[in-house]
Design a protein around this nucleic acid. Sequence first.
DNA 1: CCGCCATCCCTTTTT
DNA 2: GGGATGGCGG
Length: 802
Amino acid sequence: MSDPFDLSDADEPDFAIAPAPRAGGIAARALAGAAGAPRYLEGLNAEQREAVEAMDGPVLVLAGAGTGKTRVLTTRIAHIIATGRARPHQILAVTFTNKASREMKERIGALIGPGAEGMPWLGTFHSIGAKILRRHAELVGLQSTFTILDTDDQIRLLKQVLQAEDVDDKRWPARALAHQIDNWKNRGLDPTRVPPGEAGAFANGKGGKLYEMYQARLKTLNAVDFGDLLLESLRLMREHPDVLTQFQERLRYILVDEYQDTNTVQYLWLRLLAQGRRNVCCVGDDDQSIYGWRGAEVDNILRFDKDFPGAKVIRLERNYRSTGHILAAAAHLISHNGGRLGKTLFTDGEDGEMPTVTGIWDSEEEARTIGEDIEQLQRKGANLDEVAILVRASFQMREFEERFITLGVPYRVIGGPRFYERAEIRDALAYLRCIAQPADDLAFERIFNTPKRGLGDATLQCLHNYARSARIPLMQAARVIVETEELKPKARGSLRALVTDFARWSSLVENTRHSELAETILEESGYTDMWRNDRSADAAGRLENLKELVRSMEEFPDLGGFLEHISLVMDVDSREGGAHVSIMTLHAAKGLEFETVYLPGWEEGLFPHQRSLDENGRAGLEEERRLAYVGVTRAKRRAKIYFATNRRIHGMWQTTIPSRFLDELPADHVEVVEAATGVSYGGYAQSRFANQDSYTSTYSTPGWQRAQQRRSEQGASGGWSKGPQAAQSTQAWSGRKAPAVIEGELVAKSSAASAFEPGARVFHIKFGNGTVASVDGNKLTVEFDKAGRKMVLDSFVQAHGA
DNA sequence: CCGCCATCCCTTTTT
DNA sequence: GGGATGGCGG
């Protein structure tokens, strides 16, 4: 593990790698292949090999799903090292996630031996940004011990800023400002560069000022947020050409994973570094760009050869993951997107099973059907680790979890709450932060009355006032104030105790192992006792987590290294405990693969998600389609798609229509399956794909609306949608905004009171007959004869006998 | 200072 | 429907 506080000059050779020059172990071993071709090149196909061996100048590798992207990246690094073009510490390799960089590190290790340990510049954008920043912190007004704030701290800080500016944080929530600032940072805009129009958009023209104040506060706290790791390191390199040159010279080769996901700062940052030697190799797939909503610019990859003239573009299209039918289905689906760089995956493998599409009655039946299907796989001896359910939105997960619990199918939800986001972990870390970085007011505030020590708002206010006027951190202010008459005796006493505790703990730093110190602090502060005395059910688990935290500290050389790891790298990847079905979002599934993939919820409004369409129109639709593509291409052997006719959304049952993406699948590579569980409801199976070829991919601007309309026209003549009751998903999902689409015609939705009155007899497609109990606008509470009391939208019931 | 109730929102999410 | 949050009352 590299030490973030190691500020030694990196020009010194860093040698985890064997001291014997490269002629030694690595190169010799690597070059030991038969005909002089290094062994690590064996087994690469022609394109992969070209991508590995194209050494000089910019290279763009367009690597489709499952075409060996990581292999190319890692082999390329091995090749650079083996041919002596650069040493491990002269290669910059950036990824987006820790998982990706860990995997890359491991695989390089497997290729070239332990030399990969000596790759200090392999990591996420953020961790490398942090590293650059720590080395030259003073040039941007920080100390090298700066704290990295997470989203939570960021929001608390923004709340203070909003308060200071007297902004109504009801009307202008801190969260929204945090988003806005992130958005600016993603686009490489520091406060001076924000376009005036945008700066004025928040809080009646205060947006820009608030941003500026926030940045100033960060500096006094000696802290940065995630966005700053890139934006500030970019500024650093821009404003200090000597530093930039140093990095450009040192980092001889640059490799970038998932280039389609880079946002503007990342792009600018890379371009700056790459301008030196222009030995930059970006790997990505425009068809898998699914992070537009958090600032990723597909344009970066589409524009690569303009940014780097003379770039070599290599396409990897041979897929090693999926069977023929799956690839054909995915390819046809994605072909409906415009503006692609264009790749068509192929395989020499077998056609395999066709992906299936199954329509079922509602989301409960969806969970039941999939659950049974999995049990059947299990009986046939399938490995549950090779089974995944990929959903569009996390609320879909619950139904599966519940089902799996009753069935006793072991499952794991990927992307749940993280270890370090738990309150007890954050509290413990706050104590440590107070020691490591005395200017960290946010940490101080967090623990100042945790556990309860009778210090309230009044005391904090007083501390703040003093700290602000004296321009000192809260901790220091506290030290001064306890010597005065400012506070009531009781508060003064508690605060004094806290201050002296901290003084004692700080004096221990030098001579105590940091894990031991942490234990002492948690004990002596009363923090662990607080949980011991807690009667609630999860208290024991929290104590367990604290122990785990202390244990994990032992892996780090010092407190600083540990805190860096926690804020940038730490995730809980508990793989133990036998085989599990994975449940995760489509986003989380990128980069993974499974034998069998279940894709539930392919309905208009959910997938493609209405909000995506509303907010980003055609671009939004295309990103959704890429998400569908990512989903299908996760499957090695079996892809099973489902759509439900009814789904509960915000607690109310809504009728939905099948996703347009279903119509975009190729009829001769997809099998339509009738749901096992009875309920016959219409002839979609026979008329399916009837309109397959009537699809034209030319949407005019409010594209999705037109498409929506066309869909309903299609519906009338077959296609996926069925009876007239099926058409209201647009309304269901977008709430008030969009007009309701009723089979073939647009009907203005009246927000006026419902036509129904209490006591009226009504019929609902899912619940049957019932009596209206009460009316609230267009929401009805109905006492159904069979199904009991439910809340439904009035447009989903018919007057009885009508 | 704590705990209860009204209110609001509800896609995706890494670092 | 449900969870998070914030205000208010004890």
